[in-house]
């Protein structure tokens, strides 16, 4: 799928533990954009970020990130993104400095740059020789961010980046996002702190029940010849969802013609 967008998802369905966490997501994000992904708990925000990081396969639809087709080359995307998740991605028994060095070396970052990232995140010198397991949640968050920042990713995927941080840390995250965007990187982040997040983001998209309900297309383009003219609802025609738990999923307006739903739990 040829694309100039950094993120280009079309009717993407992603199933997690037999549940369609993404039930037909269409989303386009251009280079240098800072996009807030908002939605209630369980809406699919984390799944969307993991999919864009190349960590989750798609069941249906087309997805390209940084110009790479996720269906065929997800591993090629991973090294170019920086993901901050709910987990710290750190070894609890290694010190802060050892974690920074290890993940730096694993991703081709020099030791000096790894230390510089710790400095940028204002990780105190006195805790750098402490094992990560002894740190507070906020301190771990800063170290995780430092590891992600050191990679200089082209696409930042931040899941609740402000969570667990003090006010200084939250301001630092906002400044990092602004710096990244100014340097030409694209930022996609999920947050429940809407007031702060909306002041940082250039655009917001809303995801509910695994479907983008608002703001999915930044620059609407006329459909090319042979392409479906309408994107209202979701086209799952021909998709094999047998054995999938669809309870709680809003599929109104979805074209299920030809879809194999045998054995699927469609809920009440």
């Amino acid at each position: 799928m040829a694309s100039t967008s950094v993120v280009d998802l079309r009717d993407v369905v992603a199933v997690v533990d037999r549940f369609p966490a993404l039930a037909g997501v269409t989303l386009r994000i251009g280079s240098g954009e800072v996009v807030l992904v908002r939605g209630p708990n369980g809406a699919g925000k984390t799944t969307l970020l993991r999919l864009c990081a190349g960590l989750l396969g798609l069941t249906a639809g087309d997805a390209s990130v940084l110009g790479v087709d996720l269906r065929t080359s997800a591993s090629a995307v991973r090294r170019r993104v920086g993901l901050l998740g709910h987990a710290s991605f750190l070894y609890a028994d290694l010190t802060v400095a050892e974690n920074a060095r290890f993940w730096g070396r694993a991703t081709g970052v020099s030791d000096a740059d790894a230390v510089a990232a710790l400095d940028r995140l204002e990780v105190a010198q006195r805790i750098r020789d402490l094992p990560v397991r002894s740190l507070s949640t906020g301190q771990r968050r800063r170290v995780s961010l430092a590891v992600a920042v050191a990679r200089r990713p082209e696409l930042w995927l931040l899941d609740e980046p402000h969570a667990g941080l003090d006010s200084g840390g939250r301001d630092l995250v906002d400044a990092l996002v602004a710096e990244a965007a100014a340097a030409g990187a694209t930022v996609m982040f999920a947050s429940h702190e809407l007031e702060r997040a909306e002041s940082v983001a250039q655009r917001a998209v809303t995801i509910v029940g695994g479907v983008i309900t608002d703001g999915g297309e930044s620059e609407p383009e006329p459909p090319a010849d042979g392409e479906r003219a309408s994107r209202s609802g979701t086209d799952l025609s021909g998709t094999d969802l047998s054995g999938t738990d669809l309870s709680g999923t809003d599929l109104s307006g979805t074209d299920l013609s030809g879809t194999d739903l045998s054995g699927a739990d469609r809920g009440p």
């Binding site: 991973r78 987990a87 710290s88 070894y91 028994d93 694993a106």
Partner: peptide, 17 residues
Amino acid sequence: SVEASDGVIDALRLSGL
């Protein structure tokens, strides 16, 4: 088990190793 804790296995997959 150390790779399974705190999402480290995902970080290894993202590292490009």
